[in-house]
C-alpha cells in the first residue's frame, strides 16, 4: 500500500496548503483539518506497516507474535489526534469570534494589509 498511500498523503498536503492560503475563514478551517490528517498519516506510514497485526501481547506470551505494527508511531499519533482536536476547536472558536467582532470573514481586508 506504501506507494499509493504516499500519493494520498501528498494530495492531502497539497489540498490543505492550498486551503490554508485562501482568504475565506471557513476554508482555512478546512485546511487546518486536512493538514492534521495528512501529518498523522505521514507519521503512520513512516513506521513499518503491517496489516491487521496490532502490537498487543497475547496472554501466553511476553512479546507480540511477529510481525506486528510498530507501536511507537501509533503512540505519537494518538497524542497528535487529541492535540489536533484541541487546536481545531480553539481555532474554530477564535475564527468565529474574529468574524463576530470584525464583521467579515475575509482574511485580507484593507486595514489588515499594513
Amino acid at each position: 500500500m506504501g506507494s499509493a498511500l504516499a500519493i494520498t498523503i501528498g494530495v492531502l498536503f497539497a489540498v490543505s496548503i492550498y486551503l490554508l492560503l485562501r482568504r475565506s475563514l471557513a476554508k482555512v478551517i478546512f485546511g487546518l483539518m486536512l493538514f492534521g490528517q495528512g501529518v498523522n498519516l505521514l507519521i503512520f506510514s513512516a513506521g513499518k506497516m503491517v496489516r491487521y497485526r496490532a502490537p498487543i501481547i497475547p496472554p501466553d506470551a511476553t512479546t507480540p507474535p511477529a510481525p506486528y505494527a510498530d507501536p511507537l508511531p501509533q503512540a505519537l499519533i494518538l497524542t497528535a489526534i487529541v492535540i489536533g482536536f484541541g487546536i481545531l476547536s480553539f481555532s474554530v472558536a477564535l475564527i468565529y469570534r474574529a468574524y463576530r467582532s470584525r464583521g467579515t470573514d475575509d482574511l485580507e481586508t484593507e486595514e489588515e494589509t499594513r
Binding site: M1, L25, A26, I29, M33, N40, F44, M49, V50, R51, Y52, R53, A54, P55, Y68, A69, Q74, I77, L78, I81, V82, G84, F85, L88, S89, V92, I95, Y96, Y99, D105
Partner: peptide
C-alpha cells in the same frame, strides 16, 4: 486495517465530534 485499533477508535470519535462542531459553527459564518 494496519494494526492500530486504538488510533482507529480515537480517530472515529474525534472525527465525529469535529464534524458536529463544524456544522454548528459553519452556519454562523
Amino acid at each position: 486495517m494496519y494494526g492500530a485499533p486504538d488510533l482507529a477508535l480515537t480517530q472515529l470519535l474525534v472525527e465525529t465530534l469535529t464534524l458536529v462542531i463544524l456544522v454548528l459553527v459553519i452556519y454562523r459564518l
